[in-house]
Each structure stands twice: as C-alpha cells, then as structure tokens.
Write a protein that binds this DNA or RNA. Structure first.
Lengths: 348, 348
DNA sequence: TAGCTTCGCCGAACCGGTTCGATGAAGCGA
DNA sequence: TCGCTTCATCGAACCGGTTCGGCGAAGCTA
C-alpha cells in the first residue's frame, strides 16, 4: 500500500496526494477530503524510508549510549528516558547507538549511513575525539557534558567542579577536617571522563582552600566496591570523619562499609556528594547531596539539538547547571575522632 | 557522495559497485579492488534510507519503551542495555519508542511508517492489546513478559508465580507465619501488569498452601512509598515478621521503614522478593531474593526476534526463566512476635 | 470575445540504493 | 573455425516518497 494506490483510489495523481497530506501546496477542499477519506479507510501511512530518501531528513536523532561493560547507573536511565520523551514531543525518534567495544563502527552506522539527523552524546571526556570529530564535520550534535575546551560548542553540562566544592564547603562548615573523596572507577578517570576529573578538581581545590586533610579514591560502580573502598579509607586514615562521592552506584556499599566499621551516619561520619535524587532518597539516612537533574539535562539537550536542526546557522548555545545541595540526613557536625585502638575492624 | 560517484571514479557501472560491495554476484578481483580503493579513499558508506527503501528492510528493531510517567526501575535499564548490545551483535540498530501518553501514535510511527523490521515489547499486561494487535498483523515481535494466553507466541518471560511462591516457601520454612506482600503500584496492578498479577497469585496460593496469615499491599515505585508501606503493614498487623516484595524501587524505603520501627533485619524481620541483583546487593543487609536476570532476558529477546526475522515461517518459541533464590542476609528464622505494647512507633 | 491571471492538478525527474535480464568477450571442445 | 557455455559487466526498472515546471479550465477585465 503506497502513495500510488491512494492516488488511484482517489482518482488523482501521486503528487496531489503528497501535497494534500503535507499541505505544501494548496489543494481544493473537495479533493483533500476525498484523499483523506481513502487514507483513513486504508490506514495508509507514508514510508519513513522513502520520505527520508526523498527529503534527506530521517526525523531520528541518535543517542550515543555509554558502553555496557561498565555498569549502568540510574542517572543514565533518567537521561535516556527524558531524551526519548522530549524527542517524541518534537516528532523525532531516538536511535540508540552503543559506543561500546567498537565505537567507530556504530558511529559510522549513525553518521556514515545517514540514519540520524543529529546526535546526543553521553559520557563526555575532557579530550573527546567524538565531539571534536563531529564539530569538524559540522554535524549537528549536542553533548551531555563538556570537554576541556567547551567554548563554541553545543552542550548541556553539570558544574561538577562547583558541586564538589560545595560539598567540601558544606563539610568544612560542619567542622570536618579529614575528608575522603570517592570517585568513579579508575578506568573512567584514566579515560578522562569529565565528571570524574572536574569533580576531583573541585574537591581538591576547595579542600586546599579550607585547609582540609584529604585522600582521594577511585571506586568501582557497584556496592561491593563501595564497601571495600570504605574499608580502605578507614584503614588509611581512621580519623577520617566524612566523605564526598560522585559514585551513586557504590553508595549502598559505602553505607554498608561504614555500618560495618561501626561508624554511625551522620553521628560519627558524614556522607555527601553528587548523586541523582532517586538514589539519595533510597539510602538510610537519606543523602545530603547535590541532586543531578538528569531529566532536565536530557530535555535541554533535545531542545538544543532541535534548535540546531531547525536553524543550521544558529550560534552555539549551552546550559551549565549547578543545582543546590539538598539537605537531607547524612551529614552532621564533626565529633571527636575515634581513638586509634577503637578503630574499625579491618582485618582484610 | 553516492554510489554513482563511486562508480564513475572506479570506471564501472553503479550496479557493479553494488555487487562488489554486497557480494551478491561475482565481481572480478581486479574490479573489486579498484572499487574498494575508491570507497576507502572517499570514505563512502551507502545510505541507510536508500537501502531500506530498495530492499524493504531497515536493519532496525523497535524497543517499545515503558511510559516515563512511572519511575523507571533499574531493571528496565538492564533490559535496554542488553537489548542494544545484543542487537548490535546482529547488525541491528535499536529505535526507542515511548509507549507513554500517546501509545497509538508512536506505534503508528514504528509499524505504519515501517521504521523497524521487528519489535520488542516491555511491560506486558495480561490482556495486552499491543501483543494481540501485532500477532494479528503477523508482525515480527517478541515480548519481554507473557500475556494471560501466551501459547503460540514469541516471548521471554520470568516465572513470577513460581518465584513469588519460592519466596513464600523460603519464609515458611524459616517459621514465619504472618507475612506481607509488597506489590508494584496499584495503578499497574489495575492496568493488568503481568508481573504484579502473577507475583500476587503465586504469593497468595503458596501462602494458602502453607497456611500463612497474609496481607497484600500495593506500593509506589519510590523510597518514600516503601517507607509508608511498612508503616501500614506494621500498623495493620504488628505481629507481621516478614515481607515479600516485587518492588525494587521501594526497597530502600522498606528497609528504612523497618529500621524506624525498630525492627532489625533479619533478626526481628525477614525481607525477600524478586529483584534485580544490583539492587539486592545495594541494601544492607543484602537481600535474599530471586535475582531477575534482566540482561539475559534482553539478549534472549533479541535472539528470538532475529531468528524470527531470518525465518519468517519459524514456529513460535519462548523462554520461561525461573532463577533460584540467592541466599544473602535479609532473612532468618522467625523469633517470638513482639508483645503488642512493645509495638512500633506508628503515630501516623 | 480575446487576453490575462489564478487556481488546481498532472507528469516527470529525482533521492540512492538493489536487482533482473541482457550483452559482449573470453574460453572451450569439436 | 564455428558454436556453445561461462564470466564479468552494464543498463534499466524499481522501491515510495517529494518537488518542480507546466498546462488546462475557470474567473476576471477590457
């Protein structure tokens, strides 16, 4: 069932059907009604492939998906959900592209084979060749995250530096002097993930400003790693009284490690960080944290991309978000550090 | 840059280029090399739209995405990730379709406009008109979940009935006599979601078999609802000593509610259920639960769909999974029920 | 009524691939 | 040397839309 059949049954030419449906040229009311009737009767819908071939637009945007090897975090799901939803509002479909093992290949599929009109990139690195590559090509893309040189680019970012610093100040104001930083996994830090780097920077600088004694750790994206990480922290410096984390997937493990070491949150130990609010509210006590507005970011990314697609010559725009810290129940004033021999049981 | 330009530069016809690249007809080694050289030089990739139009296959599968209004659960993310990954292995892209507010519209986009070769459906209901509709059309689709009449269909399912029953038997074996069931939100139950219904059935029947006293509850997909739900449970029957849940998003709240009521898990109260293992391991103590093999299910769904696409006349196949309960740390023998006046503080 | 504009529709070309039938050259045996 | 097959390649049609230029009929003015 194609446009030719509709034309035949309506007794008009194919082009007339096309114009009647698209409205790009006037069609008499009578003809339009007749065509619409046949269309409704047969439930005709134009082929997306044919339309895409003819007018060069697929009405699809690509979402470059983080590799599956790393565990997904809840944040990513919120991104995806909000991107899909926002895209639907603008009549775009979303094509997922795994930028995993063979990222070149899937990139080629998306761009080389012209499956999408534009792309949204997740999991940005400070030096991100994908972003550079797309910028060179002039391909419409929006990054969720920003590279080391974000000037003149299209992106939606979170001010990880400021957020991590805000966490430090919050803890310092409460009197904490020895604070640990729990980052994303080491492989991501080494790969140059921006959140890991900017978060670490913000933490380190703010801590120096406030004269805090700090240690920084990388931690796998799962509960077991979080637990192990706390053991290391308390082993390395039992006088530590607080930690800041970017690692939401490890959060449950961090809490477990603290409980097992006999540190009560927030009485003996304060925890804060940058985490999607869904996770912050899941743990007990609920986490005082800068809530990552993942859904907003996804929506904003789509809006920027649509704007760019509609006006190819538009000047680059971006959004840098810095949500405030939500005070919940996981931080409190620093108490007296535990005496050395009352330290945690870390016989590992 | 199209196939014509490649042909011109290689000094051959367009059809020869097509055959050289697809291998569907023999091409002399010399010509093939020449063409390949030009292709590599120019970085040519055939247009997906044109190819799709010509041979009627888009190399894309649709993933019908649950509505965003409900919070996403971690399980869904695992589904999506594994589907994308498995599809990539078979050279398929994945198009996300929000089956949210206006599900007819996005369905029309996918099928009517022929954007995808096949579809994978999530969040199946016992009476699911989407499944019925696709079956009528003979459209290649695989459901993650099964309807009330799954015979003769293509699906990958979890045996929620058996899993919920296994949880009951586990608790009954430990001596628990008064057990609560924490289901997904009421709106999902009313909408006929299969996991909510089959889980409830399995729980109810097994509990009857074992002569347990039970109460069943619906609970919102978030921590606050979980906490409120525990308060209701202990208010309705303070002698309750265990609960079974399907609601992983509420899990953190359930734990918090129990802690606040002064019930220690697992000493005073046992918790178990059907939950993705990532969540089961996040809470403290770790949850003894039937681990939902979300990643396996996604992969299997893709494999079934690919099989169906390759052999349109293949007989319907399915996989019904019933993973064993992983014994962790959240269940224990039932102790003496608390005396009435030592009941929890539920002044709500 | 001739001449002009306006309106509504048609036919043809095009987007970029795939595929079928045909054609010409080379290879082979008789 | 002729006729047959085999092989590599070509040209044209096709997939199902969109879009441009043109054309006939109707409506208007003079």
């Amino acid at each position: 069932m194609n446009i030719g059949e509709i034309a035949q049954r309506a007794g008009v030419s194919r082009s007339t059907v096309s114009y009647a449906l698209s409205g790009k040229r006037p069609v008499s009311e009578e003809t339009r009604r007749k065509i619409q009737q046949v269309v409704d009767e047969l439930g005709y819908r134009p082929s997306a492939s044919a339309r895409a071939l003819a007018n060069g637009r697929t009405s699809t945007i690509g979402l470059v998906f983080p590799p599956a090897g790393n565990h997904y975090t809840g944040m990513q799901l919120d991104f995806i959900g909000s991107v899909v939803e926002a895209a639907a509002a603008y009549d775009y479909d979303v094509l997922l592209s795994p930028s995993g093992v063979d990222s070149d290949r899937s990139f080629q599929r998306l761009l080389g084979e012209r499956r999408v009109d534009g792309a949204i990139l997740m999991e940005i690195r400070l030096a991100d060749d994908r972003v550079d590559h797309l910028a060179e090509l002039g391909f419409p893309a929006v990054a969720i995250g920003r590279t080391a040189r974000p000037e003149g680019g299209w992106w939606v970012g979170l001010d990880h530096t400021a957020l991590a610093a805000a966490c430090v100040h919050h803890l310092a104001d409460l009197g904490h002097r020895r604070v640990a930083f729990v980052n994303r996994p080491e492989q991501l830090l080494r790969a140059g993930y921006e959140s890991a780097h900017r978060g670490l920077d913000g933490f380190t600088k703010a801590a120096a400003e406030r004269g805090l004694t700090v240690r920084t750790y990388c931690c796998g994206d799962d509960a077991a790693s979080g637990q192990a990480c706390v053991e290391r922290i308390l082993h390395d410096d039992p006088a530590t009284t607080a930690l800041v984390t970017l690692n939401e997937a490890a959060l449950g493990g961090l809490y477990r490690g603290l409980a097992q070491a006999g540190r009560h949150v927030p009485r003996d130990f304060s925890v804060t960080g940058v985490v999607a609010n869904r996770w912050a509210e899941t743990v007990t006590p609920q986490l005082t944290a800068a809530d990552v507005p993942a859904a907003d970011m996804g929506r904003l990314a789509v809006e920027l991309l649509v704007e760019r697609l509609d006006q190819p010559d538009a000047a680059p725009r971006h959004h840098l978000l810095a949500p405030p810290i939500s005070l919940r129940a996981s931080t409190g004033p620093a108490g007296a550090p535990p005496t050395p021999d009352a330290g945690p049981d870390t016989t590992a």
